[in-house]
Amino acid sequence: MATPSSNPLHQVPRLDAQLCFALYSTSLAMNKLYRKLLRKLGLTYSQYLVMMVLWEQNEQTVSALGERLFLDSATLTPLLKRMEQAALIHRNRCPNDERQVIISLTEQGDRLREEAAKLPEQVLCASGCDVAQIVDMKETLNTLRASLMKNA
C-alpha cells in the first residue's frame, strides 16, 4: 500500500523542476545583464523597452505603448514622467482627443538609438547561444505567453 509520502500526487514539487522558476530565474539573470549594459546609456530596463518601441515608431499614445509592452497606464505613467524629466521623451495631449497623451522622442532620446543598437549582439554573446537557438527560444516563449494570457 502506498503511503502519502510515496504517492507522486502528494509530493511537494521540486523547485528546479518548475517551468515558472526557470522563467523567473532566467528573467532575473537577463535583467541583471541588461542593468549592467544599460547603465552606460543611463536607462533602466523598463525605460529601454519604451525607447525601443519609440525607436521603431515615434509618436505613440500611452495606451499603444501599454499594449505593446503589456503594461497598464498606472505602471507606465510614472515611468514616462521620469523619462520626460530625464529629457528622453515629450508627453503631449492629442489635439483631437484631450484624453490621449502622445509620447515622442526628444533629440537626446533619439541619439541613444545608435548606442542601444549594440546591445543585442552583446546579449547574444553573453547568452552562449547561436542566433537560431535564440530565435527558436523567443518563438517558444511568445507561444507560451499567448497561451498563458488566454487562461489568465
Rank of each mutant, 00 (worst) to 15 (best):
A2W: 11
S6P: 04
N7H: 08
P8I: 06
P8G: 07
P8W: 02
P8A: 03
L9R: 10
H10C: 15
H10I: 01
H10V: 03
Q11S: 06
V12Q: 15
R14N: 07
R14W: 03
L15A: 10
L15G: 03
A17K: 05
A17T: 08
Q18G: 12
L19D: 05
L19P: 12
L23G: 01
L23F: 11
Y24Q: 07
T26N: 11
T26F: 09
S27Y: 15
L28A: 01
M30S: 13
M30V: 11
M30A: 11
K32I: 09
Y34P: 01
Y34Q: 04
R35N: 13
K36S: 07
K36W: 05
L38E: 01
L38P: 08
K40N: 02
L41T: 08
L41S: 13
L43I: 00
T44N: 01
S46A: 09
Q47W: 01
Y48P: 03
Y48S: 14
L49S: 04
V50E: 03
M51P: 04
M51E: 01
M51Y: 00
M52K: 08
L54G: 07
W55H: 11
W55Q: 14
N58Q: 08
N58K: 06
Q60Y: 05
A64S: 10
A64G: 07
L65S: 04
G66L: 14
G66T: 08
G66Q: 13
R68T: 09
L71N: 02
S73P: 06
A74R: 14
A74E: 14
T77P: 03
T77D: 10
T77R: 10
P78L: 04
L79S: 02
L80Q: 07
L80I: 12
R82K: 12
R82S: 12
M83D: 02
E84I: 09
E84P: 04
Q85F: 11
Q85P: 00
Q85M: 06
A87N: 15
A87K: 11
L88E: 08
L88Y: 15
H90V: 08
R91E: 12
R91W: 15
N92Y: 14
N92G: 09
R93Y: 03
R93S: 09
N96D: 10
R99E: 14
Q100Y: 01
Q100R: 10
V101F: 03
V101M: 11
I102H: 02
I103G: 08
I103Y: 10
S104L: 09
S104V: 10
L105C: 15
T106G: 12
E107C: 04
E107K: 14
Q108L: 12
Q108N: 12
G109I: 15
R111V: 10
R111E: 15
L112G: 00
L112K: 05
R113G: 02
R113I: 00
E114I: 13
E115R: 12
A117Q: 11
P120A: 13
P120C: 14
P120K: 13
E121L: 07
E121R: 01
Q122H: 04
V123T: 09
L124D: 07
L124A: 06
C125S: 04
C129L: 10
D130H: 11
A132W: 06
Q133W: 00
Q133K: 03
I134P: 02
V135Y: 12
V135W: 11
D136M: 13
K138L: 08
K138R: 12
K138V: 08
T140M: 07
L141I: 09
L141M: 15
T143W: 01
R145N: 00
A146L: 02
S147E: 06
L148P: 08
L148H: 05
M149G: 00
M149I: 05
K150M: 00
A152F: 09
